[in-house]
Amino acid sequence: MKVTENANLHDNYCLLKLRADGALPEMRPGQFVQVWVTHSPAVFLRRPISIHYVDRERNELWLLIQKVGEATRAMAAYSPGDTLNLLLPLGNGFTILSKTSDKRKLLLIGGGVGIAPLLFLGERLQAEGFAPNFLLGARTKDDLLQLEDFQRFGTVYTTTEDGSQGEKGYVTQHSILGKTRFDYLYTCGPKPMMMAVARYAASALIPCEVSLENTMACGIGACLCCVENTTQGHVCVCTEGPVFNIDKLKWLI
């Protein structure tokens, strides 16, 4: 796929837009791609990156990337016209509730760069007739990304750890959780945050799906490196996940 745009977002993030020569395959929110980072000799394995958004009109795939290591910094350096080798789409994706579901109040909780798959999920849920709510948390206002895009698909609530935007604190401390009874939760972010969300969901008896990011090699269920211990034993996050209902996980919550 060809890079059409690679925009730096503040210092630590970039939004990479890629266009396929042919039509993009069907993709579901929560699925991911495996990027072959060929320009960085220090990087050997592909890097799993979740699908941030699919722009069907432009035949574009968006990846939201936090620059944390060699590979992500190499990705941030791609320029329009560069060609990338991707495996896609991989993984299972979030559950898209049916139009007639009695679960109407949906909350999508994201932390840091973990907000990435929630934009695509929000768009798909809105297209299904839902009015999704987003609760997005970050360390500072500079780490809250793409808010205008999220606002196109639903109501956005925010928290920052330093109080520079939205409510001060963690997502699980946001006042909306006390005011509204949600019917279904989706979450993606750092593991401690997702565990806190899972704890909240379990105590409030709200169904909850989490997206895991266990380190992986192949991304297609062959190497068995990325396993999560579940009620069905060790299963590959890359093929059985990355999205799991918290009922399936053996987290101590």
Binding site: A42, V43, F44, L45, N214, T215, M216, A217, C223, L224, C225, C226, V227, E228, N229, G233, H234
Partner: peptide
Amino acid sequence: REGNPYPRMAETPAGMLNAVGLQ
């Protein structure tokens, strides 16, 4: 066999370590 607990993989220069344990 359930294999070894996660984490089972570490990337190295031009390679990787695995500890799948014959799952």
